[in-house]
Design a protein around this nucleic acid. Structure first.
Ligand code: NAD
Ligand code: NAD
Lengths: 206, 206
DNA sequence: CGTATCTTGTGAATGATTTCACAAGCTCGG
DNA sequence: CCGAGCTTGTGAAATCATTCACAAGATACG
């Protein structure tokens, strides 16, 4: 199969969102132009993105909202639920944990870890915060798919190494460091400082 | 001046980080190859990125860490401090507020707003959470440069409209919606769900 | 049924970004 | 001062991503 660019995948996620809105509003069909208008892309872009995976539309009419929803969910692997572990039960970890949207979208947080003895044992909405030492065992037992890393920057690489050794194949990292992972592990970073610096650049360039 | 791509700006931020590490480690000079090795880029990429703004290196030797630090800070507009307002004093807002790194990097949170009467008036580390109604006035008075939006998705567009009307020229949005802003306003999104869906796509494609 | 009007799917064209490749500059050891 | 060994800066080439443009399919309606 062709190589799909990261930006194309991002756009598919966005289309999915717009389709959900349209579906909730009772819309039956939607054109590439309308999808584009909502997402800041062009209609050609939308059609090209979708054509990477098949032809889902009907000429003259557009796309069936429900059908395209199903197709994009399939493409993105969102028909199933993924098991997520959260490492780092600090401020950010706690905000992420209590964010209900993840569950609704198929990402279920099944385990929380922290190294701080004060935090270990605490009950977080049905889950017990576990000690770092249990990580390897629990990640394997629970067959965790995704690890969210929300530990301080200097602990992040160590955590990631262990998480990878425990067989986790994808990681969402919030620590402001560039992590090293083996090729087959998928890594995405959320780096708020980087975004702020991007804004700074934009403000500065006037 | 040439148009600078967003990805180039991102990389500059990363280089800045590596340079800070190198500086802290006492390194005096660094080559494009070393910078690249740390950031997953190629050495040609590093040199090309820097060459968009000038020539800062010395052939045969590399770059002076301290000098390049200064140059990149200047390019990114990080020699000054930016005034930031946080809108939405919920779970995420509170994590962001207490994150010390922003201040250290020149982003000072000078105002916090919320619409919930229970939260308004609370004291957050020296700042008082203010009511939504005061937003327009305070944003102007304090000459806020950047607004961080951490309100629920359905309130986000309304908040952004008001923030823009109050003269704020850049926005960091955490709500999972596509915001509409005028051309001259700089917008960046941090969309955690999108990132998770990207991981899902990667896991699914095996 | 025919024609006017949509909209898709997709090669081809354009534009943007990354990589290559190498001349030219700097350092160091002898 | 010279030559060996680095490393930069940058056009040119290659790759990657987006936009254009249009044939072909679908619908609506007289
Ligand atoms: N708070 C924010 O708003 C924010 C914003 C951007 C980035 N970040 C990044 O997210 C990460 C977490 O930030 P935070 O504010 O939640 O910090 P925090 O200090 O509140 O929480 C970090 C938690 O990680 C735990 N921890 C430390 N080492 C660990 C290990 N080896 N294994 C397991 N747990 C460990 C600590 O005990 C603590 O509970 C940091 O890397 C930070 O830079 C945070
Ligand atoms: N919590 C997370 O980890 C997380 C992760 C990803 C995205 N987000 C997004 O970040 C945003 C905030 O999430 P949260 O978990 O902090 O929610 P939250 O409900 O804890 O906080 C939202 C806050 O915004 C306030 N608010 C509502 N309308 C407002 C308005 N018009 N003006 C000012 N304040 C207003 C509410 O009173 C509340 O205090 C949401 O859009 C959410 O989707 C959160």
């Amino acid at each position: 199969m062709k190589k799909i660019s990261e930006s194309a995948v991002r756009r598919l996620s966005l289309y999915l969102r717009f389709l959900q809105e349209a579906d909730a509003a009772g819309t039956d069909t939607i054109s590439s132009g309308e999808l584009a208008r909502r997402g800041g892309a062009t209609s050609a872009q939308v059609r090209k993105d979708l054509s990477l995976f098949g032809s889902f539309g009907k000429r003259g009419t557009g796309y069936s909202v429900k059908e395209l929803l199903r197709e994009i969910r399939t493409i993105l692997g969102l028909n199933r639920s993924w098991k997520v572990a959260l490492v780092g039960a600090g401020k950010l970890g706690s905000a992420l944990f209590s964010y209900r949207d993840f569950e609704a979208r198929g990402f279920r947080i099944c385990a929380v870890f922290d190294a701080d003895p004060e935090k270990v044992g605490a009950s977080w909405g049905g889950l017990t915060v576990r000690a770092d030492e249990e990580m390897d065992r629990v990640l394997r037992e629970e067959e965790i798919d995704i690890a969210i890393v929300a530990v301080p920057a200097d602990a992040a690489q160590g955590v990631v190494d262990r998480v990878v050794r425990a067989g986790v194949r994808s990681i969402l990292n919030f620590a402001p460091v560039r992590l090293r992972v083996p090729n087959q592990v998928i890594l995405r970073n959320v780096d708020v400082t980087l975004e702020l610096e991007g804004l700074s650049f934009g403000l500065n360039a006037r």
